[in-house]
């Protein structure tokens, strides 16, 4: 039972999460934790429950059963805003950007800075957005561009910038590289490494083994809505992880399995 080690407390932890949609069981007794500054890869076949689990973690769905802890404190998310207030941010697969709005408006959507309590301080928001993008080494022509004018990689970068604009503790990313050109993939992955260096935890859902093995510290697999296997990246390899996705476990993973599924 070493879910929370004595030396440090998980940035985000889920215990015994189950989620039912009517008669359909999407998740059954799933555990997950991510330490501060750790990059956790989550793999699994389509329908394994990855996205549902992430939606529970980010407050979009509420769990049917189970508990969530942020920094060791139990939390109940009433919606995405509650999760964001606790520093849990999500970058959605479809990015969830409003293409008709400017870059700064997307970054601060729902959290705009006001002037005099009524009107949005557009200048302050644009300046802050620019500073934040600079910090993340994201280059755009101007923050006043509409998001629909950007390339796929730039949009992904804006989505990540939005997720990290307010002291995020944990950033959950759902297939951030799936829709990108090859040269843009590397930039996004380096951005993830940057976040890690800033002490931000990242939960990365990906089908791409290249991504997982480039940025992750640890990888866990879901299979049919349950925990299936989990190991530090140094103790596993691509073929084993691909096997997990398909529901196969060989002898080498036995140790990590007994360690993680107790």
């Amino acid at each position: 039972m070493n879910q929370t080690s004595s030396t440090s407390i998980a940035a985000l932890e889920a215990r015994g999460i189950s989620k039912y949609f009517g008669a359909v069981t999407a998740l059954e007794d799933v555990n997950l934790h991510v330490m501060p500054g750790e990059v956790l890869g989550v793999v699994g076949d389509n329908g394994a429950g990855k996205s549902t689990l992430m939606k529970v973690l980010s407050g979009l769905h509420s769990a049917s059963k189970g508990q969530l802890f942020v920094g060791g404190q139990e939390v109940h998310f009433s919606g995405p805003r509650a999760a964001r207030d606790r520093g849990i941010e999500m970058v959605y697969q479809d990015l969830a950007l409003a293409g008709n709005l400017r870059i700064d408006e997307n970054i601060f959507l729902g959290r705009e800075q006001l002037r005099g309590g009524i009107f949005i301080n557009h200048n302050a928001n644009m300046r802050k957005a620019q500073e934040h993008l600079d910090k993340l080494k994201i280059h755009v022509k101007s923050v006043s561009q509409r998001v629909e004018e950007l390339s796929g990689g730039q949009r992904q970068a804006v989505a990540i910038a939005r997720a990290t604009a307010f002291d995020a503790k944990v950033v959950i990313m759902d297939e951030p590289t799936a829709a990108l050109a090859i040269k843009e993939v590397r930039k996004v992955l380096d951005l993830i490494k940057d976040l890690k260096n800033h002490g931000v935890s990242v939960i990365l859902i990906s089908h791409r083994m290249d991504d997982i093995f480039y940025v992750c510290d640890r990888v866990m697999a879901l299979f049919r809505g349950r925990n299936f296997a989990e190991a530090p990246l140094t103790q596993t390899d691509r073929n084993e992880v691909i096997g997990w996705i398909m529901g196969n476990k060989n002898q080498t993973s036995e140790t990590s399995e007994s360690h993680d599924l107790n």
């Binding site: 980010s58 979009l60 919606g79 995405p80 805003r81 964001r84 999500m90 959605y92 479809d94 990015l95 969830a96 950007l97 409003a98 293409g99 997307n106 959507l109 729902g110 959290r111």
Partner: peptide
């Protein structure tokens, strides 16, 4: 994008 609005709280 109504989904973006929703997940932004």
């Amino acid at each position: 994008n109504p989904q973006a609005a929703k997940v932004s709280g």
